[in-house]
Design a protein around this nucleic acid. Structure first.
Lengths: 355, 355
DNA sequence: GTGAAAGCGCTAACAA
DNA sequence: TTGTTAGCGCTTTCAC
C-alpha cells in the first residue's frame, strides 16, 4: 500500500488528529467528536475514524486538548516527605481516586519547608493543575515569601486545620489525645506520661497533647508531658530518662509514630517487664507491629477516609460547586492490644479481692 | 490608571504572555525571550517585562510552551504500590532529582497488574511524558494486551532486569542471596532455612533464592527453601511450622521484608531463645527495627543509588544521547546486628576450647 | 451530521 | 535587539 503522507520515510512525530482525519476521509472536527463524544457522529464515520486511529496507533495529545479546553485533568499533591508511610498511604489513595476519574497526579515534596513548598506549588500552577491537595509544610499555609498569589481549588489535609481560606480535612487530634488518655485511665493508670511531638511548625501536634491534658485534668490526675527532639533517638533518650525516675510512670502514651518506636526501644533497653510494669500506647498502626512482643496498642488515623474526603471536596470545588468553607474532622480509632494493661498495683488488688 | 484590556470587569482568566507584552509595550516574542533566555533582551525591555509580569501576577502556561516545544519536562513513574516503603523511598528520590532539574513527576500505580499498568502507561503517554521510570508489574514488561506500541524513553527499575528493549537497573539479588548465606555460614550455621518469595510474576525473587542455593552448595551443606504466600501471615505460619520440626534450623534467612516480619513474628510466638537458639537474617532495613530486641540483622538494597542511576540513564536517553542498552546491577549491603549469632552448639564448643 | 476556520498560550523562524 | 507571523494539536463556534 502506498503511504499517503508527504514523507514516506520513517514517521518520527506521532500521528495527530489531522492524520486520522485524512486517513478516514473526514474532518478533524469529526475525529474530535468521536474522541470526545460531545456531538453525535454517524455510525459509518465513527467506524472509519476508529479504524484509522487503530491503524495509525493514534493517541490524542492531552496537552493540546487541555490547552484548548482550559482544564488539565491534573491534580497536584504536595506533602512534606514522599517516603513517609502515612503520606505514602495518602498518595496511594489519591492515585486510586485519580485513575478512577480520569485524572493524573503530579507529586511534589516540600521537605517541610514553606519556601520549598511555595516553589513547588508555583511549578504546579505553571502546569495548570486543576486543583491542589496539600499537607502543609507549616501552619499559616500560604504566607511564605514568594508564595503564589492565587491558587487553584485547594484542600489542606492533616495539617493547618481550620485555615481561613481553604477547605481542610484532618483527624480529630484532640479527640485522639482524649481517647488515648481515657483508655489508659480506664485500665487503672494514674501515672501516665505523654510523649508528645515538639510544636515545630504545626500546631496539630499540640492538639493531641491538649486532648490528653483535658482528659487527665477531668480525672483529677497529675499530668506529665514530655516533648523532645522529633527523632526516634530523641524520643528514646527522653523516655529512658523518664523510666529511670523514682516516680516512674505506669504507662506511656506516645502521640507520634516516631515516639512510639522510640518509646518501645527505650522500654526494651531497660530491665522492665513489658507490658506488666509499663504500658505503652502508640500512634499509627504499622505492619511491623504484628511482630513485636507485646503487640503494641495504638491509636490510628483513618488515612483512607482522610484521602477520600479531601478528594471529594477538591472534586466539588473543581467542578465549581459553591459551598461554605468545609472543615472536616475525622475520628481516630484505637486498637487495644497487648502493650496496654492495668498497672501492677491495681491488678494485685483485684486479685486479692477475688480471693 | 485606565485598564487597557477590553473587559475591565473581573479578570477571570489568568494573564497571558500577550497581556504582559501589552503592559510592557513590547512584543510577545520579547516577553518569551525574557522568560526563556533563548535570545538576548535589552536591559530596559527586560525591566519593563519583569515589572509587567510582577504586576499582573503572570505565570507562564507550561502546557502551551510544551505543546509548542514538543517536550513536557515531565517524567512518569509507575510502581506496583505507592504505599510500599521501598517504592516510596524511590519516588522520594525521583522527586528530588526532578525538582532539581526542572521536571515534574506524574505518578501512577499498577497494583502489580500488567493490564492496569498498560492502561496507566497509556494515560501517561497521552500526557506526553518525556520519559518513564517503571517498576514493572511483571516480567516480560510490555507484553500485556493493549500495551502501547511505542514508549518514550523508559528505564525499568528493580524488576524485569535485563529486558531486551529497555535500560534496566536493579539490585544484585543473586549476590544478596549469596551474601546472606555466606554470613550465616561464617557464623557456623549448617542448618539454614531460606524463606523466599513465591515467583508470582517476577523472577527477581528467585534470584535471591538462587544466590543462597549457589553458596550453600559450595559449602556442601544441605539446602532448605521455604516459599509461601507473600503476606506476613503466610510467612509467619510457614516459619512456625518450620520451627516445630525436630530438625529445626539454627538460622532463617528471609529474602523479603514481609518475610522478615513474618519470621520475627513466628519466632517470638514460639518459646525459643532469640537469637541464641535461632538466628534471623532479614531483608530491607526499616526504622522500626531499632526498637526490636534483638535488633534484626538485614541485607538492604541501596534504594538511593537505584533511583540515582535509573534517573541518570533516563535523563541521558531523553537528551537523545545514544548508547548501548544498559544493565546496571547494584550490590546490596549487609548490616550484622543482634539477631544473627553463632549457633549454640558451635558456641558451646568454642567455650569448651577456651577453658 | 459534517466541515471550515479560529484560536487556546506559547515559541521559533524570518524579517527588519 | 525587536516585531510579525505561523504554527504545536486539539476543541469549538458557525455555517451548511
Amino acid at each position: 500500500m502506498a503511504d499517503k503522507s508527504a514523507h514516506s520515510k520513517i514517521a518520527k512525530r506521532s500521528p495527530t488528529i489531522r492524520d486520522v482525519a485524512g486517513r478516514a476521509g473526514v474532518s478533524t472536527a469529526t475525529v474530535s467528536n468521536v474522541l470526545t463524544g460531545v456531538r453525535p457522529v454517524a455510525k459509518e464515520s465513527r467506524r472509519l475514524v476508529l479504524e484509522a486511529i487503530e491503524e495509525l496507533g493514534f493517541k490524542a495529545n492531552h496537552m493540546a486538548s487541555s490547552l484548548r479546553k482550559g482544564n488539565s485533568l491534573t491534580v497536584g499533591i504536595v506533602v512534606p516527605n514522599l517516603a513517609n508511610e502515612f503520606y505514602g498511604a495518602l498518595v496511594r489513595r489519591y492515585e486510586e481516586s485519580a485513575a478512577r476519574t480520569g485524572y493524573e497526579l503530579l507529586v511534589a515534596a516540600s521537605g517541610g519547608q514553606p519556601q520549598i513548598e511555595a516553589l513547588r506549588i508555583e511549578s504546579l500552577i505553571n502546569r495548570r493543575v486543576d486543583g491542589l491537595l496539600v499537607v502543609a509544610a507549616a501552619d499559616a499555609f500560604g504566607t511564605a515569601p514568594g508564595f503564589p498569589a492565587k491558587l487553584p481549588p485547594t484542600v489542606l489535609v492533616d495539617r493547618d486545620f481550620g485555615h481561613p481560606q481553604y477547605d481542610t480535612v484532618a483527624s480529630d487530634n484532640l479527640g485522639a489525645g482524649r481517647l488515648g488518655c481515657e483508655s489508659l485511665l480506664q485500665l487503672g493508670h494514674r501515672n501516665i506520661t505523654l510523649l508528645g511531638a515538639p510544636e515545630l511548625n504545626s500546631a496539630h501536634a499540640l492538639e493531641r497533647i491538649d486532648g490528653y491534658r483535658q482528659r487527665i485534668r477531668e480525672a483529677g490526675v497529675a499530668e506529665r508531658v514530655l516533648v523532645g527532639e522529633h527523632t526516634i533517638e530523641g524520643y528514646r533518650s527522653i523516655v529512658e530518662q523518664e523510666l529511670r525516675r523514682h516516680d516512674r510512670p505506669t504507662a506511656i502514651f506516645a502521640t507520634t509514630h516516631f515516639g512510639t518506636i522510640g518509646a518501645a526501644k527505650a522500654i526494651s533497653a531497660m530491665d522492665l517487664k513489658f507490658p506488666e510494669e509499663i504500658s505503652l500506647l502508640g500512634f499509627e498502626h504499622a505492619e511491623w507491629m504484628t511482630a513485636m512482643r507485646p503487640y503494641i496498642s495504638v491509636i490510628s488515623q483513618r488515612v483512607d477516609e482522610l484521602a477520600l474526603e479531601s478528594w471529594r471536596l477538591l472534586h466539588l470545588r473543581i467542578a465549581g460547586v459553591k459551598f461554605r468553607l468545609e472543615r472536616i474532622r475525622l475520628p481516630c480509632t484505637i486498637s487495644l492490644r497487648e502493650s496496654t494493661r492495668e498497672p501492677l498495683t491495681v491488678k494485685s488488688l483485684a486479685r486479692k479481692r477475688a480471693t
